[in-house]
């Protein structure tokens, strides 16, 4: 059975929250790299330029994760409202089948609830599509992070005494990028699974 959308959206939000925490770690790595580049002086001129990219990247991932996290939380709240309306409609259908004497008196509210449910479902579909788009966008940052890690390794090779320390920083960047990618993959998988199951249900 498919997990309800409000659980999926909340899980996506949680994954992006973790991605944001990882990105904060990346920002710290950038600060360490800058300090090291200053100490190493002329041997790490190329690396110093890379530290700017790492800082920008960390800031971009934090900001993007925050947006997606907020979007997913909002979507989860909307999905709960839709679930309430859906639940109410199921009860109303049962009542309709009983044909109580004053059934007509409740019809306007049933219709209103039905309309609200349609509107909410439509909003949810759009919201989920947007969320998938935003996560796809985040993968660009991962590709950038991997490029930066490769460049850092190249710069480390010419850094003499500082080579080992710079290689640690380059590894940190790659590992952090991998961890962020893992969170994005899990979020993506949750959303894709829901999308597939919704298609089958249709």
């Amino acid at each position: 059975m498919a997990a309800p959308v409000f659980i999926i959206a909340a899980s996506v939000s949680a994954e992006l929250h973790q991605a944001m925490i990882e990105a904060r770690g990346l920002a710290l790595t950038a600060k360490n790299a800058r300090a090291l580049a200053v100490r190493a002086g002329s041997k790490t001129v190329g690396f110093r330029a890379i530290t700017d990219f790492i800082e920008e990247l960390a800031s971009a991932i934090i900001s993007q994760s925050r947006v997606i996290n907020h979007h997913a939380e909002k979507l989860s709240t909307q999905a709960v409202t839709a679930w309430h309306s859906d639940n109410a409609m199921a009860h109303f259908r049962w009542v309709e089948a009983q044909k109580p004497e004053h059934l007509a008196s409740i019809r306007p509210h049933i219709n209103q609830c039905d309309k609200q449910l349609d509107a909410l479902n439509h909003e949810l579909q759009i919201g989920l599509r947007d969320l998938i788009g935003q996560i796809d966008e985040s993968y660009k940052h991962i590709r950038t992070a991997n490029l930066i890690a490769t460049s850092s390794h190249v710069e480390a090779a010419t850094a003499g005494d500082f080579r080992e320390q710079l290689e640690v920083i380059a590894d940190n960047i790659r590992k952090t990028a991998d961890r962020i990618a893992a969170h994005l993959n899990r979020a993506n998988s949750l959303l894709s699974q829901n999308h597939r199951e919704r298609k089958i249900a249709c």
Binding site: H91, F92, W94, Q98, E101, H102, S105, I106, H109
Partner: peptide, 17 residues
Amino acid sequence: LFAPMLSSVLKYVPAEG
């Protein structure tokens, strides 16, 4: 109990009542 309650109540009184 909501559905059986609503159904029972609507036998005696319209919703707006």
